[in-house]
Structure formats: C-alpha cells, structure tokens
Design a protein around this nucleic acid. Structure first.
Lengths: 227, 227
DNA sequence: TTGATTTAAGGTTAATAAAGGTTAATTGGG
DNA sequence: CCCAATTAACCTTTATTAACCTTAAATCAA
C-alpha cells in the first residue's frame, strides 16, 4: 500500500525539495504551507504519517499536532524544525509528536525515521462501515438498522449514540464522553436526555439475547456483544 | 510499575551522570561498560528499554542491538552516540534501533524520548481475562460472575474491588491501597463503605469452601483461593 | 504472668442520597 | 401539523452514610 504523508512547511523551496524527494521514494505527499490550511486538510483526509514544521503562519506546529492526535490518535507525527532547544523537543513530544528532527537534516535520516515510525506504529484500526448487532446489521452512515431485508431508520441522536457504543463495544464508554461527543457539553449531566435514548436503544435490542447495554453507575455504559 | 533500563556506555563519567539522572527520575537503571558484559546481562535479564552507545569495547552497539532484538523483539532501543553521520543513523535503525540521539545531548531530551518509546510500544503484560473462583468464573471486563451458564452481574464497585482482590490473591491487599484505587482517596479510612462491599462479596462466596476473604486487622485483606 | 478491661478496627444492617430508568408531556424547527 | 429532541415527573437501583455490634490486640490490675 502506498504511504500517505502530510507535510506542513511554510518555506516553499524546502517544501518542494523535501516533497520531491519523498515522492521519488514512493510516498504520496500532500504539502500544506500554512497551519490553518493543514488543519482543513486533516479534518477531511487521513494520512499514514504527518511531518510538521513548528513555526508556521496562523497555527503553530504544536497546536496542529494536538488537533491531529485528537482526530487520529494513531497517526504518528514527526517534527522537523530549526528549533533546537531541549524545551522545544519536550514540547514537541508533549503535544503528541513521536519524533523530532532538527534542521538542517539529512533526507536519508528523515526517510529512515519515517519508516521506523510507520513500521512500529499500530496500524490504524479501520472503522467498520457496518456492525453485526445480534440479528440486526447497523449502518452508521445511513442511520439505519436492517434485518431480513426490512430496515428500521434511526434518528440522528439514536444513531450517533449507538455508533459511539459500537465503537467501544465490550469496553466502558463513559457517560461524560457520550455527553461531550453527542451534545458537546456535559452540563447535561443532570438531564435525563441520554437516559431516554439508552432506553430506546435497549427496547430496540430487547429481543436480542447477545446484545446488552449494561450500566456502570457513576461511570457509564458497556455495550456488550456476545458471540 | 518501575521501568527497567539497560544503559550501555563505556565512558565512566558519562555513564555515572546519566545513570544517576535516570535513577533520580525513578528509573531502575543497570549500567554496562562494555559490549560483551551487556550481552551477558541481556541474556539473563529483561528490560523495558535499552540505551546503547555505539562505540564500545568488544562488541559494537549495532551488533548488540541485533542481539537484543533477536531475544526481545519488543524491547525498544535508543542509540546515544557521538557518531553523527546520516549513514550511522541509518545503520542504527537498520540494526533494530527505535531512536537515535546524538551526543552531546540534553538529559531532558533523553528522558522524553525514552518515555515516548515506552508509551508507544508497550505490549502490556497481559492480565488474565477471567479468574476461577471456586465454582464461579469471574470476568472483570464484563463485570460478571458465571456458574453453570447462569451469570450474576456485579456493580461497578463490587467488580472493581473483587478484581483488585483477584490480582493480589493469596497475598495481602492493604485497605489503604483499595481505598486509593477505588475511591482515589483514603480519607474514607473511617467510613464503613469498603466494609459494606467486603460484606457483599463474602456473602456471594459464602457457599464456596475454597474462597475466603480474610481480614488482617490494621492492614487489609488476603483473598485466599485454595485449589 | 494472667485474666479482665479498654479501645481501635472492622462487621452488619438499615436508612439516606445519588445516579439512572421509564413514561408521558412539551418544545421547536421543517 | 408532524416528528425528533428535550424536559418533567415519578420510579428503581446502587452507592454512601449512619448507627450499632463484634472482635482481637493492647493495656492494666492484681
């Protein structure tokens, strides 16, 4: 498989030479020349690895790294920068970087470090397009459940909550995380809103012996799927 | 858990200062001053991470790295060396290194790179997924006990306390540790809360002759499992 | 030294508080 | 008006606190 690299560097001549060099070695490189542009790209596309300069227009590399980790925790990030102080290196690792290479650098070294990270980073767990939930099949993208060629549409809330439970099936899914993810706010903590949806989902799966939404009081839920 | 570091460096003054610095940060450091000695050590002991100089008496760091990878493929290796040429770096990664730091280096940077490798390459010591407790089987991840195909769900508190007892079965488990682990606070020391749960667990296992939660007054509990 | 007494640690049970469940009514945007 | 989303009212379960009891180690008296 071809490796997709996001390379963020604001100095055009450097950007071009490094990018060409990576392409010539078989990488599929996307170059962004400023932080805000890079942010747009990472929200839309996924990459196998990101190579970031730190001093960038609009958003610095550290903040960019944090955003990347937030969205794709398994994508390794290498900083490539003229900042050579230990505290910069530490900041780089703290913001989620997995390697830090000082300018000037050798292209050979960059390549070998990229390969090192790629070969030792856990492969991105690819998100399934559908989930087998007992006798139902759940399609998150179309907000529906189907069984024996009949489909049951889910509302937006129902589907997003179910999707979140599916992504963490057989593992704890905290009430707070669900509230933050679905409503972007956990001051809902006292509201019964989430409970209403859990109740709906439980009713939906009430006939499925292998499916259970278990409550962990004070913590959250476990969506149990037995085989 | 304390992190065991093997540090191989033939220059005594550097070896001492780096080793002291690692120890002061809570690492358990073993220093070897030549390659052959280091080889002996890695054949007998296991480490969480190895930090290697390259130019060493008897066996060079690259060969040592290869030996380490052969025996413990998951133990990350950092090279720490005065050799600064790109081809040396490449050789380092080729021989199984996972990072390469040039001398002179900052102690802070070494620490942060060690932590980075440890946090991204830990094949966690696999913990049992189930425990045989008399005629019950306990599944910590699903918060349930099962016996003869009937399952008994445990509440969050019940399960976490039982899990902790299981992890230390036939060994003392201090009251304070349980309070800290479950409630994150041992000012509960005077509260009867933990006792209430111990009481529930005892009732659960009251019919099991081979299981006993024994009290060590002023200390804690021993969860005895006889075979 | 020995047996009684004190006392701190833990055990037991019930009551209370907090978190969550359920159902129905209300809200608010197409 | 319709329907998903939310709020409200009330119910159930689990966690915590309270009150009182038991036990065993430590202290004390003879």
């Amino acid at each position: 498989m071809i490796t997709k690299v996001l390379y963020v560097e604001d100095e055009p001549s450097l950007a071009q030479i490094v990018s060409e060099s990576l392409v010539s070695r078989g990488f599929d490189v996307k170059v962004a020349t400023d932080g805000l542009l890079a942010l747009d790209i990472i929200l839309k596309e996924t990459f196998d690895i990101c190579v970031l300069d730190i001093m960038l227009p609009n958003i610095d590399g550290y903040s960019l790294a944090e955003k990347i980790v937030e969205k794709h925790p398994h994508t390794p990030i290498i900083f490539l920068t003229a900042k050579t102080q230990p505290r910069d290196v530490i900041k780089g690792f703290d913001s989620g970087g997995r390697d830090y290479l000082r300018k000037p650098f050798s292209m050979e070294e960059l390549i070998v470090r990229i390969k090192n990270l790629l070969s030792h980073s856990s492969p991105q767990p690819t998100e399934p397009r559908q989930y087998q939930l007992g006798s139902w099949i759940y399609y998150p993208s179309s907000y529906e459940l189907s069984r024996n060629s009949i489909t049951h549409p889910l509302s937006e809330r129902e589907s997003r909550i179910l999707h979140m439970l599916c992504k963490h099936s057989n593992d704890t899914c905290s009430r707070k995380d669900i509230l933050m993810e679905i409503w972007g706010d956990d001051s809902f903590y006292n509201s019964r809103n989430l409970d209403v949806y859990i109740n709906k989902l439980r009713k939906l799966f009430s006939t499925e012996k292998s499916i259970e939404i278990m409550t962990l009081k004070g913590v959250g839920y476990i969506f149990k799927i037995r085989n």
